Amino acid sequence: MQYIGRTNNFDKRKSAHSRTPGKENLRLQPEFETQDYETVRGLEQYLYDVHSPILNEIRPISLRNGNIERYLEAACKFIGELG
Results as ranks from 00 to 15, higher is better:
residue 33 E to L: 10
residue 28 L to I: 08
residue 40 V to R: 11
residue 67 N to A: 10
residue 6 R to K: 12
residue 74 A to G: 09
residue 24 E to A: 14
residue 39 T to Y: 00
residue 10 F to M: 04
residue 8 N to V: 14
residue 25 N to E: 09
residue 35 Q to Y: 13
residue 40 V to N: 06
residue 45 Q to G: 03
residue 68 I to H: 10
residue 80 G to V: 01
residue 61 I to P: 05
residue 47 L to G: 01
residue 7 T to Q: 04
residue 28 L to W: 05
residue 24 E to S: 15
residue 49 D to M: 03
residue 48 Y to D: 01
residue 71 Y to F: 15
residue 63 L to V: 05
residue 23 K to Q: 08
residue 11 D to K: 11
residue 5 G to Q: 02
residue 57 E to Y: 08
residue 53 P to F: 10
residue 2 Q to Y: 12
residue 71 Y to K: 05
residue 23 K to V: 02
residue 74 A to N: 08
residue 12 K to W: 06
residue 18 S to C: 04
residue 24 E to V: 04
residue 46 Y to W: 09
residue 13 R to M: 08
residue 6 R to C: 09
residue 82 L to G: 00
residue 74 A to H: 04
residue 2 Q to C: 11
residue 35 Q to F: 13
residue 69 E to C: 08
residue 33 E to H: 12
residue 10 F to K: 03
residue 16 A to Q: 15
residue 4 I to T: 10
residue 12 K to Q: 11
residue 60 P to K: 01
residue 45 Q to P: 02
residue 8 N to G: 12
residue 7 T to H: 09
residue 3 Y to W: 10
residue 31 E to A: 13
residue 72 L to S: 05
residue 68 I to C: 01
residue 40 V to D: 03
residue 12 K to L: 13
residue 20 T to W: 07
residue 34 T to S: 06
residue 81 E to N: 10
residue 74 A to Q: 01
residue 49 D to P: 02
residue 37 Y to P: 12
residue 29 Q to W: 06
residue 16 A to M: 09
residue 44 E to V: 03
residue 32 F to I: 02
residue 48 Y to V: 03
residue 80 G to D: 07
residue 11 D to G: 03
residue 63 L to Y: 14
residue 14 K to R: 15
residue 15 S to G: 07
residue 42 G to Q: 01
residue 9 N to I: 04
